[in-house]
Simulated assay, not measured.
Amino acid sequence: MTKAQSKDEGSWGKLVRDIAVILLLVLGIHSCVAKPFYIPSDSMMPVLRNGDRLIVSKYPYGWSYASASFHLAPRTEGRWFAALPARGDIVVLEHPETRIDYIKRVIGLPGDTIELRGGALIINGKPVKREIQPMLSIPIDPNLPGPDSGLGRFATRDAAGRPVLELPIVRETLPGGATFDTIDMGPGYVTDDFGPIKVPADHLFLMGDNRDGSADSRVPSSMKGLGGPVPFEAIAGRAEIISFSTDGTAKWYNPLSWFTALRSGRAGTNLRPERDGSANRE
Protein backbone atom coordinates (compact mmCIF):
# COMPACT_ATOMS: atom_id res chain seq x y z
CA MET A 1 0.00 0.00 0.00
CA THR A 2 1.36 3.38 -1.00
CA LYS A 3 1.42 6.42 1.25
CA ALA A 4 -1.16 8.12 -1.01
CA GLN A 5 -3.54 5.16 -0.67
CA SER A 6 -3.09 5.12 3.11
CA LYS A 7 -3.77 8.86 3.29
CA ASP A 8 -6.93 8.49 1.14
CA GLU A 9 -8.26 5.65 3.31
CA GLY A 10 -7.55 7.69 6.43
CA SER A 11 -9.42 10.67 4.97
CA TRP A 12 -12.45 8.51 4.12
CA GLY A 13 -12.40 6.96 7.58
CA LYS A 14 -12.34 10.41 9.20
CA LEU A 15 -15.25 11.55 6.99
CA VAL A 16 -17.33 8.51 7.98
CA ARG A 17 -16.55 9.09 11.66
CA ASP A 18 -17.48 12.78 11.38
CA ILE A 19 -20.79 11.97 9.70
CA ALA A 20 -21.56 9.35 12.36
CA VAL A 21 -20.83 11.86 15.14
CA ILE A 22 -23.07 14.48 13.50
CA LEU A 23 -25.92 11.96 13.10
CA LEU A 24 -25.62 10.85 16.71
CA LEU A 25 -25.57 14.48 17.87
CA VAL A 26 -28.71 15.29 15.85
CA LEU A 27 -30.44 12.15 17.13
CA GLY A 28 -29.48 13.03 20.70
CA ILE A 29 -30.85 16.57 20.38
CA HIS A 30 -34.03 15.21 18.76
CA SER A 31 -34.54 12.71 21.56
CA CYS A 32 -33.41 14.63 24.61
CA VAL A 33 -33.71 18.37 23.96
CA ALA A 34 -36.13 19.44 21.23
CA LYS A 35 -37.54 18.47 17.86
CA PRO A 36 -39.76 19.97 15.14
CA PHE A 37 -43.38 18.87 14.78
CA TYR A 38 -45.89 19.34 11.96
CA ILE A 39 -49.62 19.89 12.53
CA PRO A 40 -51.55 17.73 10.02
CA SER A 41 -55.17 18.33 11.09
CA ASP A 42 -57.68 20.72 12.68
CA SER A 43 -58.05 18.85 15.98
CA MET A 44 -56.23 21.58 17.95
CA MET A 45 -57.96 24.55 16.31
CA PRO A 46 -58.18 27.44 16.98
CA VAL A 47 -54.77 27.55 18.70
CA LEU A 48 -53.02 25.32 16.16
CA ARG A 49 -53.77 25.14 12.44
CA ASN A 50 -53.07 22.53 9.81
CA GLY A 51 -49.71 23.61 8.35
CA ASP A 52 -48.17 24.95 11.56
CA ARG A 53 -44.62 23.86 12.39
CA LEU A 54 -43.75 23.70 16.09
CA ILE A 55 -40.80 23.28 18.38
CA VAL A 56 -41.42 20.55 20.96
CA SER A 57 -39.17 20.41 24.03
CA LYS A 58 -38.28 16.94 25.31
CA TYR A 59 -37.03 17.62 28.86
CA PRO A 60 -39.85 19.33 30.87
CA TYR A 61 -41.46 16.05 31.98
CA GLY A 62 -38.34 13.89 32.05
CA TRP A 63 -37.64 11.17 29.51
CA SER A 64 -39.27 7.87 28.54
CA TYR A 65 -39.33 5.51 25.56
CA ALA A 66 -41.56 8.06 23.79
CA SER A 67 -38.79 10.67 23.93
CA ALA A 68 -36.71 8.76 21.39
CA SER A 69 -36.97 9.97 17.81
CA PHE A 70 -38.51 7.82 15.09
CA HIS A 71 -40.26 5.51 17.63
CA LEU A 72 -37.29 3.16 17.75
CA ALA A 73 -37.18 2.52 21.50
CA PRO A 74 -39.02 -0.48 23.00
CA ARG A 75 -41.93 0.40 25.29
CA THR A 76 -40.96 0.53 28.95
CA GLU A 77 -42.79 1.72 32.05
CA GLY A 78 -41.88 4.87 33.96
CA ARG A 79 -39.82 8.00 33.25
CA TRP A 80 -36.41 9.31 34.20
CA PHE A 81 -36.50 12.60 36.16
CA ALA A 82 -40.29 12.63 35.86
CA ALA A 83 -42.34 15.81 36.38
CA LEU A 84 -46.08 15.84 35.71
CA PRO A 85 -47.44 18.28 33.11
CA ALA A 86 -49.68 21.10 34.27
CA ARG A 87 -53.32 21.19 33.25
CA GLY A 88 -53.52 23.16 30.02
CA ASP A 89 -50.10 22.15 28.63
CA ILE A 90 -50.09 21.09 24.97
CA VAL A 91 -48.23 17.79 24.67
CA VAL A 92 -47.02 15.50 21.91
CA LEU A 93 -47.44 11.80 22.59
CA GLU A 94 -47.15 8.38 21.02
CA HIS A 95 -50.52 6.70 20.60
CA PRO A 96 -50.45 3.85 23.16
CA GLU A 97 -51.32 1.27 20.48
CA THR A 98 -50.32 2.55 17.04
CA ARG A 99 -47.29 4.62 18.12
CA ILE A 100 -48.41 7.41 15.78
CA ASP A 101 -47.67 10.94 17.01
CA TYR A 102 -50.66 12.88 18.40
CA ILE A 103 -50.85 16.39 19.84
CA LYS A 104 -53.44 17.23 22.52
CA ARG A 105 -53.99 19.36 25.60
CA VAL A 106 -53.69 18.05 29.17
CA ILE A 107 -57.12 18.28 30.80
CA GLY A 108 -57.01 15.74 33.62
CA LEU A 109 -54.21 14.71 36.00
CA PRO A 110 -53.92 11.46 37.98
CA GLY A 111 -56.85 11.18 40.42
CA ASP A 112 -59.07 13.70 38.60
CA THR A 113 -62.63 12.77 37.68
CA ILE A 114 -63.51 13.95 34.17
CA GLU A 115 -67.01 14.38 32.80
CA LEU A 116 -68.70 16.20 29.91
CA ARG A 117 -72.39 17.09 29.75
CA GLY A 118 -73.75 18.86 26.69
CA GLY A 119 -70.20 19.73 25.68
CA ALA A 120 -69.46 21.41 29.04
CA LEU A 121 -66.37 20.09 30.83
CA ILE A 122 -66.62 19.09 34.51
CA ILE A 123 -63.51 18.33 36.59
CA ASN A 124 -63.85 16.78 40.03
CA GLY A 125 -67.55 17.59 40.11
CA LYS A 126 -67.08 21.31 39.32
CA PRO A 127 -68.04 22.81 35.92
CA VAL A 128 -65.09 24.44 34.20
CA LYS A 129 -65.49 28.17 33.59
CA ARG A 130 -66.72 28.78 30.03
CA GLU A 131 -66.98 32.18 28.34
CA ILE A 132 -68.53 32.64 24.88
CA GLN A 133 -66.24 34.75 22.69
CA PRO A 134 -66.91 36.68 19.46
CA MET A 135 -66.83 34.57 16.31
CA LEU A 136 -63.26 34.06 15.06
CA SER A 137 -62.64 34.74 11.36
CA ILE A 138 -59.76 32.76 9.78
CA PRO A 139 -58.86 32.85 6.05
CA ILE A 140 -59.52 29.65 4.11
CA ASP A 141 -56.50 28.30 2.21
CA PRO A 142 -55.41 24.92 0.79
CA ASN A 143 -54.36 23.78 4.30
CA LEU A 144 -57.50 25.07 6.03
CA PRO A 145 -59.87 23.40 6.67
CA GLY A 146 -57.68 20.33 6.96
CA PRO A 147 -58.44 16.82 5.68
CA ASP A 148 -61.53 15.11 7.17
CA SER A 149 -62.43 18.35 8.99
CA GLY A 150 -65.96 19.24 10.04
CA LEU A 151 -65.14 22.95 10.03
CA GLY A 152 -66.17 23.39 6.41
CA ARG A 153 -69.73 24.03 7.59
CA PHE A 154 -68.52 27.41 8.91
CA ALA A 155 -67.19 28.57 5.52
CA THR A 156 -68.44 31.97 4.40
CA ARG A 157 -67.08 35.20 2.90
CA ASP A 158 -65.92 38.33 4.65
CA ALA A 159 -66.88 41.90 3.74
CA ALA A 160 -64.22 41.93 1.00
CA GLY A 161 -65.54 38.71 -0.53
CA ARG A 162 -62.64 36.55 0.64
CA PRO A 163 -63.39 32.97 1.79
CA VAL A 164 -63.10 32.59 5.56
CA LEU A 165 -64.13 30.31 8.41
CA GLU A 166 -66.35 32.01 11.02
CA LEU A 167 -65.73 29.83 14.08
CA PRO A 168 -67.72 29.68 17.37
CA ILE A 169 -65.24 30.15 20.21
CA VAL A 170 -65.59 29.26 23.90
CA ARG A 171 -62.81 30.24 26.32
CA GLU A 172 -62.19 27.73 29.10
CA THR A 173 -60.31 28.21 32.38
CA LEU A 174 -59.13 25.00 34.03
CA PRO A 175 -58.48 24.46 37.74
CA GLY A 176 -55.04 25.97 38.28
CA GLY A 177 -55.75 28.92 36.01
CA ALA A 178 -54.81 27.76 32.48
CA THR A 179 -57.09 29.60 30.05
CA PHE A 180 -57.39 29.02 26.29
CA ASP A 181 -59.88 29.11 23.42
CA THR A 182 -61.79 26.07 22.15
CA ILE A 183 -64.18 25.49 19.25
CA ASP A 184 -67.70 24.31 20.11
CA MET A 185 -69.60 23.33 16.95
CA GLY A 186 -72.87 22.96 18.85
CA PRO A 187 -74.98 20.09 20.21
CA GLY A 188 -75.41 16.65 18.72
CA TYR A 189 -71.85 15.30 18.78
CA VAL A 190 -71.08 11.93 20.40
CA THR A 191 -68.22 13.44 22.42
CA ASP A 192 -70.51 16.07 24.01
CA ASP A 193 -71.44 13.60 26.77
CA PHE A 194 -68.76 11.48 28.40
CA GLY A 195 -67.95 9.85 31.72
CA PRO A 196 -67.56 10.38 34.56
CA ILE A 197 -64.20 8.63 34.52
CA LYS A 198 -61.42 8.77 37.10
CA VAL A 199 -57.92 9.23 35.73
CA PRO A 200 -55.72 6.36 37.00
CA ALA A 201 -52.36 6.86 38.66
CA ASP A 202 -49.57 7.73 36.20
CA HIS A 203 -52.08 8.60 33.47
CA LEU A 204 -53.33 11.82 31.84
CA PHE A 205 -56.65 12.74 30.24
CA LEU A 206 -56.07 14.55 26.95
CA MET A 207 -58.42 16.48 24.67
CA GLY A 208 -58.22 18.55 21.50
CA ASP A 209 -59.23 22.21 21.51
CA ASN A 210 -61.54 21.54 18.55
CA ARG A 211 -63.85 19.73 20.94
CA ASP A 212 -66.23 18.27 18.34
CA GLY A 213 -63.47 17.35 15.90
CA SER A 214 -60.79 15.63 17.97
CA ALA A 215 -59.99 11.93 18.37
CA ASP A 216 -58.74 12.10 21.96
CA SER A 217 -59.23 10.42 25.37
CA ARG A 218 -63.01 10.48 24.86
CA VAL A 219 -62.83 8.43 21.67
CA PRO A 220 -62.22 4.64 21.39
CA SER A 221 -58.96 3.55 19.78
CA SER A 222 -61.04 1.68 17.17
CA MET A 223 -62.12 5.15 15.95
CA LYS A 224 -58.52 6.48 15.96
CA GLY A 225 -58.97 7.99 19.44
CA LEU A 226 -56.73 7.53 22.46
CA GLY A 227 -59.14 5.08 24.10
CA GLY A 228 -59.21 6.78 27.51
CA PRO A 229 -56.53 8.26 29.78
CA VAL A 230 -53.01 7.90 28.40
CA PRO A 231 -50.01 6.45 30.31
CA PHE A 232 -47.62 9.19 31.40
CA GLU A 233 -44.69 7.43 29.74
CA ALA A 234 -46.38 7.86 26.32
CA ILE A 235 -45.82 11.64 26.51
CA ALA A 236 -42.94 12.69 24.27
CA GLY A 237 -42.69 16.40 25.06
CA ARG A 238 -44.31 19.82 25.41
CA ALA A 239 -45.24 22.13 22.51
CA GLU A 240 -43.44 25.43 23.05
CA ILE A 241 -43.63 27.74 20.06
CA ILE A 242 -44.72 27.95 16.42
CA SER A 243 -41.60 28.26 14.28
CA PHE A 244 -43.49 28.96 11.02
CA SER A 245 -46.74 28.11 9.24
CA THR A 246 -47.61 27.48 5.59
CA ASP A 247 -50.89 27.74 3.69
CA GLY A 248 -50.37 24.71 1.45
CA THR A 249 -49.40 26.57 -1.73
CA ALA A 250 -45.65 25.85 -1.59
CA LYS A 251 -44.14 23.72 -4.38
CA TRP A 252 -40.86 21.90 -3.82
CA TYR A 253 -39.64 22.87 -7.31
CA ASN A 254 -40.35 26.60 -6.80
CA PRO A 255 -38.20 28.15 -4.04
CA LEU A 256 -40.08 31.45 -4.32
CA SER A 257 -43.30 29.67 -3.29
CA TRP A 258 -41.64 28.54 -0.05
CA PHE A 259 -41.77 32.17 1.07
CA THR A 260 -45.08 33.23 -0.46
CA ALA A 261 -46.76 30.25 1.27
CA LEU A 262 -45.80 31.51 4.74
CA ARG A 263 -48.75 32.62 6.87
CA SER A 264 -48.11 36.00 8.42
CA GLY A 265 -48.34 36.44 12.18
CA ARG A 266 -47.91 32.76 13.10
CA ALA A 267 -44.15 32.50 13.64
CA GLY A 268 -43.11 33.00 17.24
CA THR A 269 -46.52 32.24 18.75
CA ASN A 270 -46.04 31.01 22.33
CA LEU A 271 -48.02 27.80 22.95
CA ARG A 272 -47.88 27.87 26.74
CA PRO A 273 -51.40 28.68 28.04
CA GLU A 274 -52.16 31.94 29.76
CA ARG A 275 -52.73 31.62 33.51
CA ASP A 276 -55.68 33.31 35.19
CA GLY A 277 -54.46 34.36 38.61
CA SER A 278 -58.03 34.62 39.94
CA ALA A 279 -58.80 30.95 39.22
CA ASN A 280 -58.93 28.38 41.98
CA ARG A 281 -55.60 26.67 42.49
CA GLU A 282 -55.19 23.11 43.66
Rank of each mutant, 00 (worst) to 15 (best):
141 D>H: 15
141 D>T: 04
66 A>E: 02
193 D>S: 12
172 E>Y: 02
276 D>R: 01
96 P>I: 03
203 H>S: 08
254 N>Y: 05
227 G>P: 02
116 L>I: 05
179 T>E: 11
4 A>E: 13
263 R>T: 05
276 D>E: 07
61 Y>D: 02
17 R>N: 13
109 L>I: 08
29 I>S: 06
40 P>F: 02
179 T>C: 13
278 S>H: 08
73 A>Y: 10
272 R>Y: 15
140 I>N: 09
111 G>I: 10
171 R>L: 13
53 R>S: 04
63 W>K: 04
204 L>D: 04
252 W>A: 10
159 A>G: 06
53 R>G: 00
79 R>A: 14
146 G>C: 04
20 A>H: 05
125 G>Q: 09
115 E>R: 08
47 V>W: 02
19 I>W: 12
48 L>N: 05
145 P>V: 00
80 W>Y: 14
207 M>C: 08
116 L>G: 07
226 L>S: 03
152 G>Q: 06
211 R>G: 04
43 S>D: 07
26 V>N: 05
121 L>R: 01
231 P>K: 12
250 A>T: 00
262 L>D: 02
158 D>S: 11
264 S>G: 15
105 R>Q: 06
173 T>L: 14
102 Y>S: 05
234 A>R: 08
245 S>G: 03
216 D>S: 02
73 A>I: 09
137 S>W: 11
153 R>T: 05
144 L>S: 09
106 V>T: 01
97 E>M: 10
204 L>A: 02
271 L>H: 09
2 T>R: 14
6 S>D: 10
282 E>I: 12
156 T>R: 13
120 A>H: 12
34 A>W: 02
180 F>L: 01
